[in-house]
Computed example of a mutant assay.
Amino acid sequence: MPVIELSYSRLQKLIGKVSKKQISDSLPFLGLDIESEVKDLVRIEYSPNRPDYSTDFGIALGLQGLLGIKTGLLKLTVKKSKNYSITVKPSVSKIRPFVTGIIAKNGKIDDKTIKQFMTMQEDLHFGIGRKRKKSSIGIHDLDKISFPLTYTTVDKNHKFIPLNSEKELSISEIITETETGKDYGHLLGQSSQVPIIIDSNKKTVSFPPIINAGITTVTTKTKNLFVEVTGINKADAEDMLSVVATILQSAGFTLEIVQISGAKNSSPKLEERKISVDSSLINQTLGLDLSTPKIISSLRKSRLNAISKGKKIECTIPPYRFDIFGPMDLV
């Protein structure tokens, strides 16, 4: 089970008017197991099925609902824009065919926020990304990138300065000499070509699923972000993006669309879904006698939208809750 370290004082700021004891008492009701507590810090285990709990922003979102501070669905607000686009070349189709992304602007980033983002990224890689094989994320300083971008392939002689390095390396050197290259280079198979994202000035942005370019490193001075997700399946890539987008909006960023086209790729939809459930199924399964208003209130505390429609309750599911497949998951 993945583990995350949280600060009670930071959670209090994110949630609103709530005591440390209220947070501590409520965490298990989100399905979170407290592993240890030392003064202001608490380490918790969370289910891999809830990757939104990989940061304190996601946990604060859940606690706000449980404690009745903010209930109902957090609606993703993604502004339309023609300023950001990615063109996908057919050459990636047999290697890592899909890319998606989003722009996040006007956020405040400190060292603790960077740590939270890094934890989220690695937990997503390990969980739904299946150790980066199915999908992987790159988070970049938007202001260091010139759009439009191209997702294409290059040979292994291609050079750039990778993250956490001061010198230019070839793709071959990155794969054989860097830690991430040694860990994940095998995911690209034996192909002589590798996937790459380049900007309009021909600068390398990312070498997925291995490493970002050093020039786009996120720091405490970063205000605007570009997030890209690549993968072997479009749905998996968009699921991962939906978690990141939700966390970034919760962190105070405003979101903008990235237009994506070429080689069977398209712009992310990040759509909500609707699932109906019968109140009798809930009561029979749980052995309770809950009224329809009480069920709706409970669903809203779970950060879903719910309304009564005839004999059924219609729930609106946010895109990041891809762990909800049908009525029994709502029960």
Rank of each mutant, 00 (worst) to 15 (best):
D40R: 02
T100N: 07
I295Y: 03
L270E: 04
T222K: 01
A251Q: 02
K17I: 06
P97F: 00
I102H: 12
F325I: 11
N265M: 06
D33P: 09
R132F: 11
T216C: 05
V78S: 06
K203S: 06
G181F: 02
K94L: 09
V244N: 02
S85M: 03
N283H: 07
I198L: 13
I215S: 08
I102N: 09
N106G: 02
S267K: 13
S24G: 01
V42P: 01
H186T: 12
D40H: 02
D141G: 00
I114T: 00
I232A: 07
E314L: 14
L281F: 15
T216Q: 02
S267W: 15
Q121C: 00
S250R: 06
V331D: 15
K312G: 13
N49A: 10
F253H: 09
S146I: 00
G189L: 10
P90L: 03
S24M: 01
I296G: 10
Y320R: 09
A237F: 13
L32A: 02
T216R: 01
G189R: 09
G31E: 13
I197P: 00
L32E: 03
M328H: 14
L255K: 06
I44A: 05
L14R: 11
D25F: 04
N283Q: 08
L73F: 08
C315I: 14
E271T: 14
I211R: 07
T71A: 12
I211G: 05
Y8L: 08
T204I: 12
T113F: 05
E314T: 15
V18L: 07
N164A: 10
P2F: 10
K17S: 09
D289L: 13
I95S: 05
E5R: 15
V331M: 14
S266R: 13
V229I: 15
S19F: 05
S206C: 01
S146Y: 01
L76I: 05
T219F: 00
L30S: 02
L32H: 01
L30H: 01
P209I: 15
I139W: 01
D143E: 05
G101W: 12
E256Y: 14
N106I: 03
K131A: 14
F126H: 11
R303K: 15
P208K: 11
L286V: 08
D183N: 15
T204D: 10
K309T: 08
H140W: 12
S279T: 14
Y184I: 09
A263P: 10
G231Y: 04
E272W: 10
I215N: 03
